[in-house]
């Protein structure tokens, strides 16, 4: 892992990996969503709205997983002072915020026909909205810190503090009476029939690969900016 902290070594494997992740993720996602829309059966209670799950669950997972990765990168930035870890955290923030917003929006679209309401201030929905605001706060703090030319230490600490919200999101449906249902996939098995679950598995993996490709692209862009600035300084000297 420490070997990856070297930007040159990171780029030597990130460059070939980016198209593989991107195209592989897009292809898997396309196939799974096609299956989810046209091949898998409807649910006996929800009817066709069950298909919204194939985009809702992966985006929610990436919104939360994105912050977990951001927090891990922040920790490594703080402990080992790896610049690349700070760059990774910064590259995750925008895609993570987009995924969280999509999870909230698709959840509302599912909630209207199923629950009978777009939004309710229950534990799960509120803690997920908080996650979106945490991403916004991280982006603002990080931009302000970079403007002053610092190491972005405060945003790294903010990334760690925000991770406390992740177990709250996960356990909200177990701790409290909520409108949102409890998890269907637990260590005890799946409450989702296999005919409905396979497109979900495919779209979750597909979205995750595509998310990884997006993060790599954003990291490469940030490294490119840094190289550009360094070469400009050298040329001026």
């Amino acid at each position: 892992m420490h070997a990856l902290a070297n930007p040159a070594r990171f780029l030597s494997f990130a460059r070939p990996l980016t198209p593989w992740l991107g195209w592989g993720g897009a292809a898997l996602l396309g196939a799974s969503l096609f299956g989810g829309l046209f091949l898998s059966p409807r649910d006996y209670l929800q009817g066709e709205t069950v298909r919204i799950m194939y985009v809702h669950v992966p985006t929610a997972w990436l919104g939360m997983g994105g912050w977990a990765a951001l927090a891990a990168a922040s920790a490594s930035h703080l402990v080992w002072r790896h610049t690349l870890a700070g760059i990774a955290a910064r590259a995750i923030a925008v895609p993570g915020a987009v995924m969280t917003a999509l999870a909230l929006a698709t959840g509302a679209i599912w909630g209207r026909p199923t629950w009978g309401t777009w939004w309710e201030w229950d534990g799960r929905l509120t803690s997920m909205l908080l996650l979106f605001f945490l991403y916004c706060g991280y982006l603002a703090l990080n931009a302000a810190e970079r403007e002053r030319g610092g190491e972005a230490k405060l945003s790294a600490i903010f990334g760690l503090v925000g991770a406390v919200n992740l177990p709250v999101i996960h356990f909200s449906v177990i701790w409290w009476n909520t409108l949102h249902q409890p998890p269907s996939l637990t260590t005890e098995g799946s409450a989702i029939d296999a005919s409905i679950a396979w497109p979900l598995l495919g779209s979750t993996i597909g979205f995750t690969l595509l998310f990884a490709a997006i993060v790599l692209m954003r990291m490469r862009a940030i490294l490119g900016q840094a190289r550009f600035a360094a070469r400009l300084r050298r040329a001026a000297a």
Binding site: S40, P41, R42
Partner: peptide, 9 residues
């Protein structure tokens, strides 16, 4: 309230 079970008809 929806529960956690998803099944085809």
């Amino acid at each position: 309230k929806h529960d956690e079970n998803y099944k085809p008809p």
